[in-house]
Design a binder for these strands. Structure first.
Length: 457
DNA sequence: TTGAATTGTCATTCC
DNA sequence: CTGGAATGACAATTC
């Protein structure tokens, strides 16, 4: 804010002085040239500036009260003749360090006290300081060089920011595509075996339909981008993740239908007579036990216990229907216990899948947030560099203006002031004085009368 | 065969 | 109190 204010002010100053200087100065800064009201009665025409008294009307603020002048001092006051309301409590400032008047547009009416701004140019805009800041910030950019910043800015403009860090991001599209394809294949395989895996992932038996749905096949599969395509139905499940509030979640996660449990209880029951212990050795199963080979443990358990209905029903039926189903059959305590375990495990399995998907979604969104912030950071860094560049140009321009003004000043005898002995000083009220070098601001403040006495007419 | 990734299960908490 | 969702931790399985 301060820098921009300075810039605008200085642009106004340059505009006002463009008559004898570079007429396109303002344009050089690449900034807004919105004119700022400047008191046009400011001039140096009363100073000994034979050839340029009309050329720098706005650089040097008028309104300085020309009161007593001490003849002994050689300070020259460059002010307008109609200055009236400003006392001499300005802090003289060497113009070599002045960048711009602190209140260039307040010269016509100094109702508000003008704060002393000693040497704002040298203190705020010292080029070396700016460079140091710039380098420091760049060093703190965690590898964000200026070139990188520009590059990032380009990426921002081309809305391709997702490429950031994509090389090491697990959310690469390739991985997601691989996941989806494998998921589809596994799903079809599951459908072949009626009780294959994914118990109770869906009550929908339309396997073919589901397999065509994006990200819906095979239940949870690794791959971040696939997760992004998932639709959730229950956004309320993400209370604890405020950063995800803007994301629509389908809490059901399009559970896989690979099981496609058509109810054929007689099929598994007729084929599987293995005990729970036997199924633990399924790797050694003979070919006739393909069903077991492709069955989940609970399915094998169910077959072993001769559960007369599918695991899919056990898991996915509503409580009422589930209880009715149990009531319809005469089941032993062991069977009932197994059925309840199957239901609990099946539901928990789906819950675990959903939980993992949510977790990955959270990671994805956080990574996206990081990328967004990085782009913002790069953009701001680029803007900063542009501002620094503009300030540097302004300083150079100001220095040239200083030289031009100083070299045209003449004393009472028409002689130029030696730069080694005099310098232009800038006061807080906007006036400009030519003062002998070595006279400090403190001295001026202690002896304000001298400055006024030395005002150059 | 090994290790990483994935999936299933258990325990627990919470609603 | 029950059912079930959520989730960390660990085991089993797959790749």
């Amino acid at each position: 804010m301060a820098i921009m204010e300075l810039q605008v002010s200085f642009i106004c100053l340059v505009n006002a002085t463009s008559g004898t200087t570079d007429s396109n100065t303002a344009g050089n800064f690449g900034l807004s040239t919105r004119p700022t009201p400047i008191n046009q009665d400011v001039s140096l025409h009363q100073a000994s500036m034979p050839s340029c008294s009309q050329d720098f009307p706005q650089i040097f603020n008028p309104q300085l009260e020309s009161v007593s002048i001490t003849p002994r001092t050689t300070m020259l006051r460059l002010s307008s003749s109609n200055s009236t309301n400003v006392n001499s409590t300005f802090g003289a400032t060497n113009l070599t360090g002045i960048f711009l008047p602190p209140h260039i547009n307040s010269s016509s009416n100094n109702v508000t006290s003008t704060p002393i701004l000693p040497d704002p140019f040298s203190t705020l805009l010292e080029e070396s300081m700016l460079d140091e800041i710039s380098l420091l910030d760049l060093a703190m950019e965690e590898g964000f060089s200026q070139a990188q910043a520009s590059q990032l800015e380009d990426e921002l403009d081309s809305d391709s920011g997702l490429s950031l860090d994509s090389s090491h991001s697990p959310a690469s599209p390739s991985s997601s595509e691989t996941s989806c394809s494998s998921a589809a294949s596994s799903s079809s395989t599951s459908a072949t075996f009626s009780e294959e895996g994914a118990v109770g992932y869906s009550t929908d038996s339309e396997v073919a339909t589901v397999e065509t749905e994006e990200g819906a096949v095979g239940g949870y599969q690794p791959g971040y981008s696939k997760l992004c395509r998932m639709s959730y139905q229950d956004p309320s499940q993400f209370h604890s993740l405020p950063q995800l509030d803007s994301i629509s979640h389908n809490h059901t996660y399009n559970l896989p239908l690979s099981s496609a449990f058509s109810e054929h209880p007689e099929l598994p029951l007729s084929s599987g007579k293995k005990t729970v212990r036997d199924k633990q050795n399924s790797k050694l199963q003979p070919p006739q036990d393909l069903l077991d080979k492709h069955s989940s443990r609970d399915e094998r358990r169910a077959r072993a216990m001769k559960i007369p209905f599918s695991n899919e029903k056990i898991i996915n039926l509503p409580v009422e229907e589930f209880n009715e189903l149990l009531a319809k059959h005469h089941l032993s305590e062991a069977q009932l216990a197994l059925i309840r375990d199957i239901r609990r495990r099946g539901k928990n399995k789906m819950a675990a899948q959903n939980c993992r998907k949510r977790k990955l979604d959270t990671i994805i969104n956080l990574e996206q947030g990081v990328q967004d912030l990085r782009r913002d950071k790069a953009r701001l860094l680029k803007e900063k560099m542009e501002f620094i560049r503009s300030i540097r140009q302004m300083k150079q321009k100001m220095q040239s203006l200083y030289q031009e003004v100083f070299t045209q000043l003449r004393d009472e005898e028409g002689r130029p002031y030696p730069p080694s002995e005099y310098s232009l000083q800038y006061s807080a009220d906007g006036s400009v004085l030519i003062m002998p070098r070595g006279l400090t601001t403190a001295e001026q403040n202690r002896k304000p009368e001298k400055k006024q006495k030395d005002k150059k007419k």
